[in-house]
Design a protein around this nucleic acid. Sequence first.
DNA 1: TTGTAAGCGTTATCAC
DNA 2: GTGATAACGCTTACAA
Lengths: 345, 345
Amino acid sequence: LVKERVTSQDVADVAGVSRTTVSLTLNEVQTVQISQKTRQKVIKVARDLGYVPDAAAQALASRRSRIIGLLLTRSPHHLISDDFFTQIIDSLINVIHQQDMRLMIDIVEPDHQQEIYINLVRSKKIDGILLSGPRFDDDALMVLAETSFPTVLLGQLPDSDFCSVDVDNFSAAQTAVEHLISLGHTSIACITNTSLSYTASKERLNGYRSALRNSGLKFDPDLVAYADFTVDSGYECITDLISRRKGFSAVFVASDTVAIGAVSGLKKSGLKVPQDIAVVGFDDISYSRYMDPPLTTVRLPASELAHKASEMLIGLLKEGQPADKHLLLDTNLIVRSSCGASLAS
Amino acid sequence: LVKERVTSQDVADVAGVSRTTVSLTLNEVQTVQISQKTRQKVIKVARDLGYVPDAAAQALASRRSRIIGLLLTRSPHHLISDDFFTQIIDSLINVIHQQDMRLMIDIVEPDHQQEIYINLVRSKKIDGILLSGPRFDDDALMVLAETSFPTVLLGQLPDSDFCSVDVDNFSAAQTAVEHLISLGHTSIACITNTSLSYTASKERLNGYRSALRNSGLKFDPDLVAYADFTVDSGYECITDLISRRKGFSAVFVASDTVAIGAVSGLKKSGLKVPQDIAVVGFDDISYSRYMDPPLTTVRLPASELAHKASEMLIGLLKEGQPADKHLLLDTNLIVRSSCGASLAS
DNA sequence: TTGTAAGCGTTATCAC
DNA sequence: GTGATAACGCTTACAA
């Protein structure tokens, strides 16, 4: 399998052609015509010899590494989890492999973010960046913006020039909360999915506020708690909210994972879902429909998001410009039983 | 940030030394002594110029890409999920970054597995392989075994010569089932986490059988159902088991994710957990303690597994041989309330 | 202690 | 259509 390294020279020698021809043939260079005969011969010899181009040599000469970098933002203590993180990677790899490219994963540490972008870009280790979970407080991102290095955000960063693929977190959250309002709830708490430095988190909170406003309900800061992506934080947030004794009858949780903790906390406090408190989540992770009660939530098309984002990035790499610079995919409210029936009935 | 590419020649010119000296200094080559003066000068100039070595050139010349490949096995329809997949990546990246290396992720498709190993190895795109979830039916793995390409399994493959880091799935499962037996259960069903092609899955099932045998209980194939890593499959498996009307009073589910589906199915069938059916899971994912009822399960040290595995691989790369070729980390049974009290009481 | 020079295995620019 | 011949930017014997 790896005994002796086969180079393009070996292929050329055996096929009786030059290295140039081997390269031209194997790379299917369109601007040059290779005769059927030599073409097939080269291909056959290459296969017989088990020739695989040296990635480093290829990258050095062509100035393209054929590697896409997926940059993940790390929340305070850990990577952002959720089971569709896997879906994203899965989807990404599928698209990327079709282009004979590979996926490199990196974590953007809140502290030395700057460094990682610069190193990645300058070392030319990757051809493009897919950035998941952009944050407002990511200064290095601004620097990156000025380099015109091919980048696509999985999410959005207002006022930036980055290409992006996202869902409309604002209106999705608004719809979710409106659902609660339509059931007759007038005092609705909110647990964010994470810190508001994350653009998605802020948008979801804004959607919540907007829904309240549109229905003439007052926004009460005391009815908002801030989670950190984890189940644990959901449990803590709801416990905290309950202790404030503001008497809400429903809660909008901007993450299913966090909602699982919240529902657990409600039960622990002797509150029944949905009889005492209605709950609506966000994301529709695979566990949600099997919760007790099944969770009403907003479906996020994780695979499609990743699929579109990687296609957009590849478009950027090949054509220089993608068809659309910004894409917003649809979400939809999945009504299950965690909100119960209308309070009126 | 990226306007003009700075090469080692530029650094050499400005510092008034040769490229050799720059390379020697920046790579901290131990076999050569560079005077403090030049050393500091080179470092300063490099930083001032924002010099970052070209990864491709470095790889080509040094024959090391400084990239570790994480190979994921794909189950029939999707990547293996679970929230500690994230933990593994997180932990991996931490260790790898400390070595100034990066992580590349790839998926091993059941069909053309062979291809991916060969390409990865031959193209020298990666320096080492970390293979998660080895399977018995992975023929290409045998080919890989003969190449002596640096590889560490996150899991085990009996009768192979691969380095590996794993937990003792067999005895962990055995312990979990013994717990059920100690509570007085004599008819215990089992839902595997996935297909038995996965070594871990088979070991867990064997542990289940062993526990039964040790207690003089008969193994009944009709009490076993096979899941596929998903919550959905857990729901289906338990529904199937119930429909067989074998009258079990407990079920050992070899995956918490699958167990979530199973518990949901039990409730749906009007069975109470743990009053009617005791449930014990495996993995201790973050959702488990917040389930209703909280799930008794086996804790799998995901981060440590990844940490040890990456350290082992790095040992392989640097010293040629790691301290230990095989590592087994401890698991422990986390008793929560999904098993209830002893039947006798 | 530092410099010279020969690769590393491709791709790409020209001639032929 | 095909083949020399430069790059590409670095590492690393080997010299000095």
